[in-house]
Design a protein around this nucleic acid. Structure first.
Length: 551
DNA sequence: GACTAACGCATA
DNA sequence: ATAATATGCGTTAGTC
């Protein structure tokens, strides 16, 4: 039984709410109640809550111990609908949507507040003037109609529903937090970097390595200043253009080894050192501030602390609670499988129908068993390779998997021509900024590319990748939604999500059930997103005490 | 002091 | 196998 209610927070902790008819209009009286969380918590029969912003409301509900099954996030949906209509970038607040509906001047979105370490996810909340409840009801009804204007209305409904669900997942993950051992982290820092001068100065190891670098050059060189390092190498007779690690590695000079070690440790020191620990880890939990759909392609971002860039060495600090385990699962070779599902290339679907090594299967099919070649060709197709040996491999791929390559080629061409490009469910890549003239588009891969043609080509690589990466993000939303539902009766908690990888923290006795639930969620997401497809989305799962042991 | 660009590197 | 996609973020140097 579908029972929808709309709700909005009122001053002083109260709420205004109303039951809705299927068309979004209120089904009865509009109620005012003194306690927002109680208003929701006392209505467990409600199947979907319609509200302005999950980031505004849901952390408050969670803080009161109230969870909801489903929601409909009006401002998030407004962004997706605007994007689909090629109007990404227009204000997406409820107030703006209401103004567009009534013909009033459209207010710009308030600027997002800067990240504040340790604060709960409500920091994403758009701070704006309260809008009448009537506006919320009317904008909701209007959005329901606008879904019908989409190229694939059913897919669009799936997209907005699943991203609303993603908002719930994000708030719940931030509430739970990733278990983080401050002790292990400090031990790790001491082991890698040594003690700090005066307890808070530069770590001993960095000072030593900087001295080694200077000694190797015979004069003072500061390794954290690229200009300094470049000059030193040039004076020593080495031609280098940058101080990037892979370029330095080609040089035969005694400064190289300590320099590379310095860069590695310096990165850890600045990005995940003592200050990071102080700022971002509290009460044994790291809360990255997940934001679903934070990128154009629909990938999530985090609001602070570099939550999606936790270096592998630092993962030793992610430790399950006593008696609990971490179920770490990543979707294997996700992007080529997504390409199979969206392109419906028969040969690629066939190899993606097996959960084994996809690149090996592709190599058997088209590259005489050379897996490296096959992998390069597939990645080249997805990323838009422009040079190198891979091009030859790409030609072979095109021959054996024509529909798959045509799919991304079409996306690239659409991008180069400035047309809209969409993911499978309808998330839309905004049109390119600079319009391109016909000559630019026709122009052959000129010997000397014009800025416009370079721009068009870069655009094409972007949109080529967008359809795959973005459709993977579509799939991931449905996978998370299904997993969240499956975990609801357990003690297990989703605590981390990173593009194609999830971590569930659970009592050890639940680990097996969790692993099963993850694969089931993956299978369900495949069917829900793409319809019946032979493509398998296999998860590689490890149950560990320590994140570092998962790989 | 606030802001930005360029750089470099961590993740998928 | 650092070529190609997407990000976040901390540093320094330069500008206002």
């Amino acid at each position: 039984m579908d029972e929808r209610w709309a709700i909005a927070a009122e001053e002083g902790g109260g709420a205004v709410l109303a039951r809705l008819q299927p068309d979004g209009q209120p089904a009865g009286h509009i109620l005012h109640e003194p306690d927002l969380a109680a208003a929701v918590g006392s209505r467990p029969q409600v199947t979907r809550w319609v509200w302005r912003s999950s980031a505004e409301i849901y952390p408050r509900l969670l803080a009161s111990g109230v969870r909801v099954d489903r929601c409909y996030d009006i401002e998030n949906t407004e962004g997706l609908l605007l994007g689909h209509a090629g109007r990404l970038g227009e204000p997406r607040s409820l107030a703006a949507a209401w103004a567009r509906l009534t013909g009033a001047p459209v207010p710009p979105d308030p600027p997002a507040r800067a990240a504040v370490p340790g604060e709960q996810s409500s920091l994403f909340e758009i701070q704006e003037e309260p809008v009448a409840f009537e506006a919320l009801l009317q904008v909701y009804a209007d959005q329901l109609r606008r879904h019908g204007d989409a190229e694939h209305p059913e897919r669009m409904r799936l997209l907005t529903a699943s991203e609303s669900s993603g908002m719930l997942v994000a708030a719940e993950m931030d509430r739970a937090g990733l278990p983080w051992s401050e002790t292990v982290h400090r031990e790790l820092l001491a082991e890698l970097l040594g003690e700090r001068f005066g307890g808070s100065g530069e770590p001993r190891r960095l000072t030593e390595l900087a001295d080694e670098v200077s000694a190797a050059f015979g004069h003072r060189v500061r390794p954290d200043l690229p200009a300094d390092v470049l000059k030193a190498f040039k004076n020593a007779g080495y031609q280098v253009k940058t101080t990037r690690r892979w370029e330095l590695e080609t040089l035969d000079h005694p400064a190289v080894a300590p320099l590379i070690e310095y860069k590695k440790l310096y990165r850890i020191y600045t990005a995940n050192g003592w200050s990071w620990l102080h700022d971002w880890v509290h009460d044994g939990r790291f809360r990255p501030g997940f934001l679903p759909g934070g990128t154009v392609s629909g990938r999530w971002v985090t609001n602070g602390g570099g939550g999606l860039q936790i270096p592998k060495v630092i993962r030793r600090a992610v430790v399950a609670d006593p008696g609990w385990s971490l179920v770490v699962a990543d979707a294997s070779q996700l992007e080529p499988r997504i390409l199979a599902a969206i392109s419906r290339d028969p040969a690629l679907m066939k190899v993606a129908g097996d959960s084994g090594d996809l690149y090996k299967a592709v190599s058997d099919e088209a590259f005489a068993g050379n897996r490296d070649m096959a992998k390069l060709a597939v990645l080249g197709a997805i990323y838009g390779q422009t040079s190198g040996d891979g091009l030859k491999n790409l030609a072979m791929l095109r021959k054996r998997f024509p529909r798959a390559v045509a799919y991304v080629d079409d996306a690239a061409r659409a991008g180069e021509e400035g047309r809209l490009v969409r993911t499978w469910l309808g998330r839309t890549c905004p049109p390119s900024g600079a319009p391109l003239d016909a000559a630019t588009l026709e122009g052959p891969p000129a010997d000397e590319p014009t800025p416009d043609s370079r721009h068009a080509r870069a655009r094409g690589r972007f949109t080529r990748n967008f359809v795959v990466q973005g459709s993977a993000a579509d799939w991931a939303l449905l996978m998370l939604a299904a997993l969240r539902q499956a975990l609801a009766p357990l003690k297990a908690e989703l605590v981390f999500f990173q593009h194609d990888e999830v971590i569930v923290h659970c009592p050890t006795e639940e680990a097996e059930a969790v692993s099963t639930a993850i694969q089931a969620a993956s299978d369900l997401a495949g069917t829900l997103t793409f319809g019946p497809t032979p493509t398998r989305f296999a998860f590689t799962t490890a149950t560990v005490q320590n994140y570092a042991d998962a790989k």
